[in-house]
């Protein structure tokens, strides 16, 4: 049906869709987290959805933690046996510990999947 849509209609449709897309992208901010510890103290606690490369200084050198697309891993580490690097992407609830460099990366998750009343 031609002429059914006016300028304001198209504006409303566009803005509405934009709002929905923005809300969709911001969804899940309360979900999973990453806690990086250095020497037992919390070095950084961030959301797993924020892509970033974190350099954590330790007694042997720098441990590089990569957070990308909702996953986290230890990208490189100066420890001799490279255990935490070989662990790869860390599963939710698990953690990778680079003991010689005194760095640990914990992939936390929100305590509840759902709550029923």
């Amino acid at each position: 049906m031609p002429g059914a849509l006016r300028l304001g209609d198209i504006l409303v449709l566009g803005l509405g869709l934009g709002l929905i897309v923005i809300l969709w992208q911001q969804r899940g901010d309360t979900g999973d987290s990453v806690i990086i510890r250095s020497n037992g103290d919390i070095f950084l606690a961030v959301d797993v959805r924020l892509n970033r490369l974190v350099r954590v200084p330790g007694p042997l050198g720098e441990t590089v933690v990569e957070i990308r697309q909702g996953r986290v891993r230890v990208q490189s580490d100066p420890s001799p046996r490279q255990l935490c690097v070989q662990q790869g992407w860390i599963a939710p609830g698990a953690s990778a510990i680079c003991l010689p460099n005194r760095v640990s990366v914990e992939r936390g998750h929100s305590g509840y999947d759902s709550i029923h009343y």
């Binding site: 059914a4 006016r6 300028l7 209609d9 449709l13």
Partner: peptide
Amino acid sequence: RLSPAWLGPVGLSVLAAM
């Protein structure tokens, strides 16, 4: 109150539904 030439039933319907 807006002019029907500017905002038609589709705009009204979408805004009311949201």
